[in-house]
């Protein structure tokens, strides 16, 4: 049943219809979500800035979800020696980095009018920044090793180390903020969200999920073709 996960041909057949489908669903949901978003009256507390939440929170949730996907793909590639899993991990990294960047920038733009500052070193933002550093390090390591199989394995080890490290980072920054109590108290987003905002919020989250799914599948397809092209090139050179 899960043959499409490790068999390249089955995967290509699956993604051929799955990728456009996910993309279409994501696009439709995004339009609907944004429409509902702007059709709702401005929030009593947050004013017009509430609209940033609809693109910030999905981005940050997805940045962590992609990280998880990358770690799982790395694990599968490392333990079961699946080249498709390696390709999946490699493909996910730029998407994760982009989403993390979005989360940071939109979060900053949300924070300035809300809490008066562009940046604050609380657990969430700081660990998001560390996450971005991880993605960049991952992509740097990938680019620095020429042998593909070796690069994939090294990156897989890094991903597994990183996935263990991130909760520790979150914990440490959280502790550090309790030490510096009184400097800032960050009210988490989504607290006391007015009911009129809930549907577009959920829709946007699913839209982002669909977008990631579609883009990830497309990128893995590109990876599969790239490897096939390289194999054919080597064969032709003989």
């Amino acid at each position: 049943m899960f043959a499409f996960l490790y068999n390249p041909d089955r995967f290509m057949a699956f993604s051929r219809w799955a990728a456009p489908l996910f993309g279409a669903i994501a696009a439709v949901l995004a339009v609907v979500g944004l429409w509902l978003d702007f059709a709702a009256p401005p929030d009593y507390q947050q004013g017009y800035t509430i609209h940033v939440m609809f693109i910030h929170v999905p981005a940050s949730m997805m940045s962590l979800f992609v990280y998880l996907c990358l770690a799982v793909a790395s694990f599968l590639g490392l333990v079961f020696r699946q080249p498709l899993a390696d390709a999946a991990a490699r493909a996910a990294a730029p998407l994760g980095a982009g989403l993390t960047l979005l989360a940071l920038v939109t979060g900053s733009l949300w924070g300035k009018p809300m809490w008066g500052t562009w940046w604050v070193w609380d657990a969430r933002l700081t660990s998001e920044l560390v996450l971005l550093l991880f993605y960049l390090g991952y992509m740097a390591l990938q680019a620095a090793i020429d042998d593909e199989a070796r690069a994939a394995r090294a990156c897989a080890i890094l991903a597994l180390v990183g996935v263990v490290n991130l909760p520790i980072v979150v914990f440490s920054v959280d502790w550090w903020n309790t030490l510096h109590q009184g400097s800032t108290l960050f009210a988490p987003s989504g607290q006391g969200l007015a009911p009129v905002y809930v549907p577009p919020f959920l829709i946007m989250i699913v839209a982002y999920l669909g977008a990631f799914g579609a883009l990830w599948l497309v990128r893995i397809r590109a990876e599969v073709w790239r490897r096939r092209a390289n194999v054919l090139a080597v064969r032709a050179a003989r």
């Binding site: 560390v130 996450l131 550093l133 991880f134 960049l136 390090g137 740097a140 390591l141 890094l158 180390v161 990183g162 490290n165 991130l166 520790i168 980072v169 914990f171 440490s172 920054v173």
Partner: peptide
Amino acid sequence: AVIVLPLFAP
């Protein structure tokens, strides 16, 4: 240095 930075944070 880039790889190790996230690990140094805690």
